[in-house]
């Protein structure tokens, strides 16, 4: 292959001819490469989606038949040898989730926004270390938060398992997620807007409230929703501290059952029929997370309308 193309061309025409010849020879290889690459990425996509779709398929297939109005609104009933198919509903868990998770949101959202603002505003080493700590907390096994709350709350309340303890565990779990994500949202606000505000004689707090937070709001909502979806699906930290109940009692100071702890409890059931109930609860959870996500997208789209 000591072709002319490899020797140094002497004229402009020769050089152009050499480049064009090489390019057309390389063309087929180039095409093959890109096809292979496309194939590899498609395969990766397929591998990633197979478990996802099979989970959703199984959840829907096994769970959908249970979902009735009665199932959602009545308390559970334990099956017995004589009534193997008697399971009642999950109203206790729906109430428990709404209560425990709602309280956790009520605590974690304002705390996280404050933490995010503090992280955003300060530049010192101490704050840098705190941020790193929060990031580390995100990666911690979630049962640790349950153990922490068990040790410092449940034991001090004379080992009483309460919904409040569950809310606290979820709060400790969600605050790092939310605050780091919200800080990212704040960092996305162009510095020129802050400067413009200050140059008009605004105080820092005014700039934060009227410009920075307002601009970052859609992204912060997204961040909060994502962290919340993570929180609502958590089992381990809650399981340790909230106990369980059969009645929807709307009282944070008593034991509660949430959708996830109910799943954990009934999967250990003696009765097959009751065990398959977990699919229905899983379906419910997936729908709730999906709706939360959809709602946040709609809100964000509305907030974004008219600017950006």
């Amino acid at each position: 292959m000591t072709s002319a193309a490899l020797e140094a061309p002497r004229t402009d025409d020769e050089r152009r001819a050499a480049v064009q010849e090489a390019a057309s020879r390389f063309y087929r290889r180039k095409t093959l490469y890109s096809k292979l690459f496309l194939g590899a990425t498609s395969l990766g996509l397929l591998i990633a989606f197979i478990p996802l779709f099979s989970i959703i398929y199984n959840v829907v297939r096994n769970g959908i038949s249970y979902i009735t109005w009665k199932f959602l609104t009545t308390p559970p009933q334990s099956p017995s040898i004589f009534h193997k198919h008697q399971i009642g509903g999950i109203s206790n868990a729906i109430e428990g989730t709404a209560l425990v998770f709602g309280m956790a949101l009520l605590m974690s959202v304002p705390i996280s926004i404050m933490v995010a603002i503090a992280l955003y505003e300060s530049h010192g080493r101490v704050m840098g270390a705190l941020r790193t700590l929060l990031e580390v907390m995100i990666g911690m096994p979630s049962i640790l938060f349950g153990i922490f709350i068990y040790t410092y709350v449940v034991e001090r309340m004379h080992f009483q398992l309460t919904g409040l303890a569950g809310s606290l565990a979820l709060t400790v779990l969600m605050v790092p997620l939310m605050s780091v994500a919200c800080e990212q949202a704040l960092r996305g606000v162009p510095a020129v807007l802050t400067e413009a505000g200050l140059a008009l004689g605004a105080k820092k707090a005014q700039v934060m409230r009227k410009i920075v937070l307002r601009y970052a709001l859609p992204r912060m909502l997204t961040a909060i929703m994502l962290s919340a979806s993570r929180g609502i699906g958590e089992t381990a930290p809650v399981l340790l501290v909230i106990g369980s109940t059969y009645v929807a009692n709307w009282n944070l100071m008593t034991s509660q059952t949430t959708l996830t702890t109910l799943m954990y409890n009934i999967i250990q059931s003696f009765y097959n029929y009751q065990r398959s109930e977990v699919w229905a609860i899983a379906l419910l959870l997936i729908v709730v997370v999906f709706v939360l996500n959809l709602a946040s997208r709609i809100i964000v789209a509305r907030l974004n309308r008219g600017h950006r």
Partner: peptide
């Protein structure tokens, strides 16, 4: 903040509050 009300500023790129 009072100084900045007396000495205003216009920036390099237009930066209205979006």
């Amino acid at each position: 903040t009072l100084l900045r009300t007396r000495v205003g500023m216009v920036f390099q790129r237009p930066n209205p509050f979006p």
